[in-house]
């Protein structure tokens, strides 16, 4: 396998940055996220980031089009970008999340132009995990914690050096560009890490199909304060709202923002009809979307086991705990 020693990583990143906009994981205070690389940046490859790379493809706010009224009425979407977007150090759970977002934004009749335009420019360089944190459960959600299926290139932490394996044509192209920085290593790929958190997701789809009306929803939603932290940190949550902003009397722009399903008026309609009037219905919809509805529609979980919502929820909501709680639930037939 090709590899680079850890000391030589900065030089390699400098090389990568010549190919496009390079994003690397970096911490500031308690938060870490992917930021554009600069030579003096502090890279944090020890832990997964607080914010996933979702915002690079699907920004928190994004202009859909500018509008102008007057003699002529025009709407003008922003021009597509041309630079490659290279994201370095993406964990396998977050690569899996991109596969979920690809299904949403690129399939089923309509293609989201804004997402597609960035997705085509995206090159994912993943970093396989050698340590699982105590909130990690990707393996139990069907993710390979080392191989990062869906990445263009995968990095392995080999003690003192990083091994490289290219997975796609895009990955091969990038590998060529950095070939002079790499040398051959005889070290083997690391073993999958051991997980302290075990989640039993076997058979939950079939079970949840029969559990729409159950007291468990009342019980599991009690703690929720509806703050939507889970949705904002979730690498797969893709709901959005659309609004407009006037910059002048007859001019402005339409934009979308991340939205989240635990808000009070999320499903409220004209005439006061609300199909999800309390947090019981809203949590049920959220958990079922993650664990059942997305499976029914796209054949995969909309939860990758990244553990962010468990770690950051101020009220202690725990979807992994919920899945394990299902073991004790019996449904007939």
């Amino acid at each position: 396998m090709k590899a680079v020693s850890k000391e030589k990583l900065p030089a390699l990143l400098e090389e990568l940055a010549k190919e496009g906009t390079l994003y690397v994981p970096s911490s500031s205070g308690d938060m870490s996220r992917f930021v554009p690389w600069k030579s003096d940046i502090q890279i944090d490859l020890d832990h997964n980031t607080t914010m996933s790379l979702k915002g690079i493809l699907f920004p928190q706010t994004e202009v859909l089009y500018d509008y102008k009224f007057g003699e002529e009425n025009t709407v003008e979407p922003p021009p597509p970008g041309s630079e490659k977007i290279i994201v370095f150090g993406v964990r396998p759970c977050d690569v899996q999340a991109i596969r979920c977002l690809d299904e949403v934004f690129l399939t089923r009749t309509y293609v989201d132009s804004y997402y597609k335009e960035k997705r085509e420019r995206l090159i994912i360089i993943s970093l396989g995990c050698t340590v699982a944190e105590d909130t990690c459960f990707c393996k139990d959600m069907g993710v390979n914690p080392v191989e990062a299926e869906g990445a263009d290139m995968v990095l392995f932490d080999l003690d003192g050096e990083y091994g490289f394996e290219e997975k796609t044509d895009k990955g091969k192209e990038i590998a060529k560009k950095i070939a002079s920085q790499l040398s051959e290593t005889s070290k083997k790929k690391p073993e999958a890490p051991s997980f302290s958190l075990q989640v039993n997701s076997k058979g939950i789809v079939e079970k949840l199909q029969k559990m729409f009306e159950r007291p468990i929803w009342e019980e599991v939603s009690q703690k929720c304060i509806g703050c939507n932290t889970c949705a904002y940190l979730c690498p797969t949550c893709h709901c959005f709202d659309i609004n407009s902003k006037n910059t002048e009397a007859m001019k402005g722009y339409k934009y979308r923002t991340w939205d989240a399903c635990l808000g009070k008026d999320y499903a409220l309609m004209a005439g006061g009809h609300d199909v999800r009037p309390s947090k019981v219905e809203r949590i049920r919809n959220r958990y079922l979307h993650k664990l059942l509805f997305f499976q029914e529609r796209y054949g995969m979980f909309l939860c990758t086991g990244c553990g962010r919502c468990l770690r950051e929820c101020p009220a202690g909501m725990n979807i992994a705990g919920f899945i394990n709680q299902l073991e004790g639930v019996t449904v007939d037939g």
Binding site: H238, D259, N285, L292, F293, F294
Partner: peptide, 19 residues
């Protein structure tokens, strides 16, 4: 049926009933 809608094209997630 009628639900709240934002995108109209099955992306924004607003109008689901089940899957």
């Amino acid at each position: 049926l009628e639900m709240r809608m934002k995108c109209g094209v099955g992306k924004c997630g607003r109008c689901n009933i089940g899957s």
